[in-house]
């Protein structure tokens, strides 16, 4: 009955707005990466105003035609404000059209998270604290992954609640996706440590951070490969298969970008001057290539986290539908089952 009544109130708007939220958050993360790449974090010294102007009233000609670091920093703030507004619209749509209690709480959590992220950004500027910049850079991708999860939970696929025909209940598939998503976030944090290394750090500090980041990259690659292999072998259905294969491809791409990031910033490692390619390579500071590759590597890290979160959530959903006795998450999944049962 509950399902029938919720179907009669069904609106595509929560899902549409969730997808819009995801689509706006990714460029926001990208531009945030550009802010760090170009060291533009303090390009606007005040907050929440911009050089004394209200955020939305800063003269657009000065913004567009002014210095590059002002363009990206103020642009980042405007995009952040837009994201916040879409999050609010999403919450309003959920309150209006979605009867699921936990979904409403999730929508509120999204608004709280985006406001928190905005406050972190403001604190970074007001306190001129690069540590806060690093934390801000870690919370942003978390929000992006959360927005992707909201898009999943508001989707038709979720509402239909169709169990997968041959879901591998005994293969610990869902558990593996949880590990992959956790490792992806851990790797993102390690990357943030490398990128926001303080200038007073010693060579040992940077070395540790880089080694951790490399070891975790290998670990993550191993687990993603396991996941891809299991997906190909066990065929859990397109809702999981497609994002897992995409994750595998993007993971390989990201490893390449990681190598590329090192090369464009510090030259070819290990090859020395025995090869013309490494002997002739000249690093050009803040060149288009250097900025593009570095920022793309940062943005792809967030994308990996979001896809891993989507895979994880879908797997947990299918796991709970296929084998209710083996619930992993109690609150979320059991409520979902309860709704389906009624």
């Amino acid at each position: 009955m509950k399902l029938a009544s919720s179907q009669s109130e069904f609106s595509p708007w929560p899902h549409r707005l969730a997808v819009l939220l995801v689509c706006v958050t990714f460029p926001l993360i990208w531009v945030g990466g550009l802010v760090t790449t170009y060291d533009a974090g303090m390009a606007v010294p005040d907050w929440p105003t911009t050089y004394g102007y209200n955020l939305f009233l800063y003269p657009w000609q000065t913004w567009i035609l002014g210095p590059w670091d002002l363009l990206i920093e103020h642009g980042h703030r405007l995009l952040g404000a837009l994201t916040g507004m879409i999050a609010l619209a999403f919450t309003a749509a959920v309150l209006r059209f979605d009867q699921r209690k936990w979904m409403r709480w999730a929508a509120f959590a999204a608004v709280v998270l985006v406001i928190f992220q905005g406050l972190l950004g403001g604190a970074r500027v007001l306190l001129d604290a690069r540590t806060l910049a690093m934390i801000h850079g870690c919370v942003g991708p978390l929000f992006f992954a959360f927005a992707a999860c909201l898009a999943v939970t508001t989707s038709n696929w979720w509402r239909r609640g169709s169990a997968s025909e041959n879901w591998p209940t005994k293969a610990r598939f869902a558990g593996l996706t949880v590990i992959v998503a956790s490792l992806a976030y851990w790797q993102l944090i390690l990357g943030a440590q490398v990128r926001h290394m303080p200038v007073m750090a010693t060579p040992m500090d940077f070395r540790m951070a880089v080694i951790f980041h490399l070891v975790m990259a290998v670990t993550l690659l191993v687990f993603v490969s396991l996941l891809v292999r299991k997906t190909i072998r066990l065929k859990p259905g397109p809702a999981v298969r497609q994002p897992v294969l995409l994750l595998g491809l993007i993971m390989l791409f990201q490893i390449g970008l990681g190598v590329g990031t090192w090369v464009v910033k510090y030259g070819w490692p290990l090859l020395g001057d025995s090869y013309a390619m490494s002997a002739q390579y000249l690093v050009v500071n803040e060149s288009l290539l250097q900025s593009f590759i570095t920022t793309l590597h940062v943005a792809t890290g967030s994308l990996i986290l979001a896809i891993a979160a989507v895979v994880c959530l879908r797997c947990l959903r299918l796991q709970s539908l296929a084998a209710p006795a083996s619930i992993v998450f109690i609150g979320l999944m059991s409520q979902t089952r309860w709704e389906v049962a009624r």
Partner: peptide, 21 residues
């Protein structure tokens, strides 16, 4: 374990920055 490892990461790689001197 995961919280401990995360904490270890932050402790090993650092969270703050000493003043420039």
């Amino acid at each position: 374990i995961s919280s401990g490892l995360l904490l270890a990461t932050v402790m090993v790689t650092g969270c703050g920055a000493p003043d420039a001197d």
